[in-house]
Design a protein around this nucleic acid. Structure first.
Length: 262
DNA sequence: TCTATTTGACCTTT
DNA sequence: AAAGGTCAAATAGA
């Protein structure tokens, strides 16, 4: 019973994401008739209401800032219990949907998978990643990735710890010089054209092993080194230490999300 | 040969 | 004691 509701909510989420992307594209098309724009806006609004009726909040909280240039990202802070005591760190979670099933968001940083675990009550195992530069630069950042129970195309990504590696600084710098709109467009092109686009079949129960690469990973040719690298939308929330605030704020600006500390 | 991933075992926390 | 998180040896791929 609950599964049905969850599945419904997940489907509505995807509908909303697609509606908003369509809306964004129509908005960006000067040749599009006004009626089309109104229809898209109404569609997004309708799906949004449906999500509420389904008993959950739409991605991105109250729907503000959703009709942005990229139209595919939103942030929802979610509190999760966990072994890392909440008193130690602020926890944030990213929910990433991959409409094209290419894989969830990539945050522009290099991650190395170090473990996977079946979680009680979860359909899919949780994968554990740490920063590639953990040993070379002492970067303590980790993240956890898990497929959503209701929808295999949704991924819950939990960021833990602060990035102290040089790459994080590089990502920060790149964000400061890249307009969100152009960024999103480039993202799509990268994803769709890259022969190395990683396929992650729905059948697979294993979260993606986010390809990690050497320090020079953040290059245009590497789809996994792009920020927000998935079609669809992303519910994002971040866990961070104070020193990581700046990066998160920049990410937030890119996605125009609603960030809630947890 | 080097680097990343997989996976069972071990450790920590509740 | 159970569940979650991490380690590290084995394995695979480039």
């Amino acid at each position: 019973m609950e599964d049905t509701a969850a599945t419904l909510a997940a489907e509505l989420d995807r509908l909303l994401a697609m509606a908003r992307e369509l809306e964004a594209r129509v908005d960006g098309d000067q040749g599009a008739p006004g009626d089309a724009r109104q229809l898209c806006a109404a569609l997004a609004e309708s799906v949004d209401r449906a999500i509420r009726l389904a008993g959950r909040s739409p991605p991105g909280g109250e729907g503000e800032g959703e009709g942005n240039a990229t139209g595919r990202s939103s942030v929802t802070g979610q509190v999760r219990g966990g072994r890392k005591s909440a008193a130690d760190k602020v926890r944030t979670q990213v929910r990433v949907a991959s409409v094209t099933d290419v894989g969830p968001l990539n945050d522009g940083l290099s991650w190395r998978k170090y473990g996977q675990k079946d979680i009680l009550g979860a359909t899919y195992p949780r994968a554990y990643f740490r920063c590639t530069h953990r040993h070379t630069q002492g970067c303590r950042a980790t993240k956890q990735v898990q497929r959503a129970h209701a929808d295999p195309l949704l991924f819950d990504v939990l960021y833990l710890g602060a990035h102290t590696c040089a790459q994080a600084a590089a990502v920060l710098a790149s964000l400061e010089h890249q307009p969100p709109a152009a960024f999103g467009l480039e993202q799509q092109q990268q994803q769709s054209s890259s022969p190395e686009g990683i396929q992650w079949p729905v059948e697979s129960l294993t979260p993606p092993s986010f390809p990690s690469s050497p320090a020079g990973c953040y290059t245009p040719g590497n789809p996994w080194c792009q920020l927000a690298g998935s079609h669809g939308y992303a519910d994002m929330a971040y866990e961070y230490d104070p020193q990581f605030d700046e990066l998160l704020l920049n990410l937030s600006e890119v996605f125009q999300p609603e960030v809630q500390n947890l």
